[in-house]
Design a protein around this nucleic acid. Sequence first.
DNA 1: AAAAAGATAGCAACTATGTTGCAATTATAA
DNA 2: TTATAATTGCAACATAGTTGCTATCTTTTT
Lengths: 147, 147
Amino acid sequence: MTKLEKLIKILKSKGKRITENKEAILRILISTKNPIGIPDILNQLSYKNLLPNKTTVYREIYNLEKLNIIKKVFIDQENKLYELNSEDDHHHHIVCTICNKVAEFEPPIEIEESFKKFQKTLSKKNNFKITDHSFEFFGTCNNCNNK
Amino acid sequence: MTKLEKLIKILKSKGKRITENKEAILRILISTKNPIGIPDILNQLSYKNLLPNKTTVYREIYNLEKLNIIKKVFIDQENKLYELNSEDDHHHHIVCTICNKVAEFEPPIEIEESFKKFQKTLSKKNNFKITDHSFEFFGTCNNCNNK
DNA sequence: AAAAAGATAGCAACTATGTTGCAATTATAA
DNA sequence: TTATAATTGCAACATAGTTGCTATCTTTTT
């Protein structure tokens, strides 16, 4: 079963309908390598000759986020950026603060382990139910360094 | 020397002038416990009966960021949020995704150490000059959990 | 003291992102 | 077939943030 099929199955099981717009949005989310924002999604849809109203896309992204299919990525403050929220691919990002190029990395197990431990301590101390974390690096990429 | 005096000294050494607006913005940045956005700064200024044009504040924040006196905090995508960039207080945030309450934490030394090590590996692997990182937790605070 | 340089500031106009209310349409289930 | 709920578009709006221009003020230079 492809990623797309899996997602469609989940959506249908939640009583959602698969429309041309929605499937196209899913395809974009699946195929894009980097976190993506809504203005960019609207652009990509228009390349495919789909011209849904922006309200439609904003609402669809809102729904996908509520269903936990996508999640916000905190690496940029110009746009809200999203990416698929897949259990089996827990990755983070390195962002070039000049050209906005994004690379992914998976932290070594030791780090993930120490996060988990620390998260428990922190949770108790601050009386927070912790559900997520962000761990991202910022800097300048090779290309921008040599300009 | 108070924080304010230190900052004023730095600004003056860079040929900047200390105006009523600027000093008030610095005071707000110093006294605020959580990362703050410009609309919020504008509000707080108006409470003090200062009504600078928003352009003025946007520009001042831009300057402070360029001078490395403040830095962006990546915990929210509604607003650009900033906080003072003090060397001696390297902290991160736990954010309530319901009420937006923010608490701070300082990660244990082991974690900071492992970050540094890992950062080197990552830097080589991806050909990035890494200058900063974000490490934040998200969840729900005690108050919101009991509602 | 006058002039030059540059820092500060305000204003209007603009762009872009994102939101809301409403009405129309369409698909699914009973 | 009818009721229910999902989807969509549209217009209007709200807000954040930017830009060009001009005016003013402060510091430094002459």
